[in-house]
């Protein structure tokens, strides 16, 4: 069971959170005019990297905030967590 560092509450057990998948994929600007390809890309395509991954979590059983985590998908190491609106930290080497 992972320890997720909520930027508000600190480290809490994974069971308190809801996972939200990849972070920072952009809803196309002027989305109503977006091409089918661009829209499908936004809806369905995710990176699913082997390695460092910026992802979304919500502290459901805690402060109910959505935030971002940089997690390694193989080792589950968590490099950092940050709030919505914070600068995106660099991925570890």
């Amino acid at each position: 069971m992972l320890l997720i560092p909520c930027p508000y509450c600190g480290e809490r057990a994974e069971g308190e959170f809801r996972y939200g998948g990849e972070a920072h994929f952009r809803r196309p600007d002027n989305h109503l005019e977006a091409t089918d390809e661009a829209w499908a890309d936004y809806l369905f395509m995710r990176k699913n990297p082997k390695g460092w991954h910026r992802e979304r979590w919500m502290h459901l059983a805690g402060c109910r905030r959505w935030f971002y985590v940089v997690r390694h998908t193989i080792t589950h190491k968590i490099a950092t967590a940050y709030k919505v609106g914070d600068a995106h930290p660099d991925l570890p080497a």
């Binding site: 809801r18 809803r27 919500m58 959505w66 609106g85």
Partner: peptide
């Protein structure tokens, strides 16, 4: 109930600030 709440909060907190 729970899913809708989380989903709307998601939009409010991350997109519609």
């Amino acid at each position: 109930a729970a899913g809708v709440y989380v989903w709307i909060e998601d939009w409010l907190q991350t997109e519609w600030l």
